[in-house]
Design a protein around this nucleic acid. Structure first.
Length: 109
DNA sequence: CCCATGACTGAAG
DNA sequence: TCTTCAGCCATGG
């Protein structure tokens, strides 16, 4: 079910709760899960979630608001297209007004 | 077992 | 303010 103790599942849970039109960072998710030093593992988990379309991985970017994972999506601009489809503007692989669109799970969850 | 890589981050210069 | 370095931990060779 949804309440698995697996790290990957936890990452998916948080990712699914990211509000429409908002974004967050790998570190924010890691910190919320109690593994602030494992931001890279969050990225790893999201990489494994590529086959799971219930996980909005495109809403997760790095701390600079840059779409570092766009290369892992199908096609070249899919990640950016998905974000812009939600009203998020992306300029040169970077989320415009990132600080305002940023959603912190530890503060809103 | 050791070494290199990676969807990252924070500190130092 | 921007650039560079080191720490982090799992996975693969």
């Amino acid at each position: 079910m949804s309440s698995n103790d697996n790290f990957f599942e936890k990452v998916y849970e948080v990712a699914r709760k990211i509000p429409y039109g908002r974004v967050t960072s790998y570190g924010a998710i890691a910190k919320y899960l109690g593994a602030a030093r494992s931001a890279r593992m969050v990225g790893w988990a999201l990489n494994a979630s590529s086959t799971d379309d219930t996980v909005p991985a495109h809403r997760v970017v790095n701390r600079n608001g840059i779409l570092t994972g766009k290369h892992h999506f199908s096609g070249i601009n899919l990640m950016q297209q998905l974000l812009e489809n939600e009203g998020i503007k992306v300029k040169n692989l970077q989320v415009v007004d990132f600080e305002s669109l940023f959603w912190d799970p530890s503060k809103n969850l």
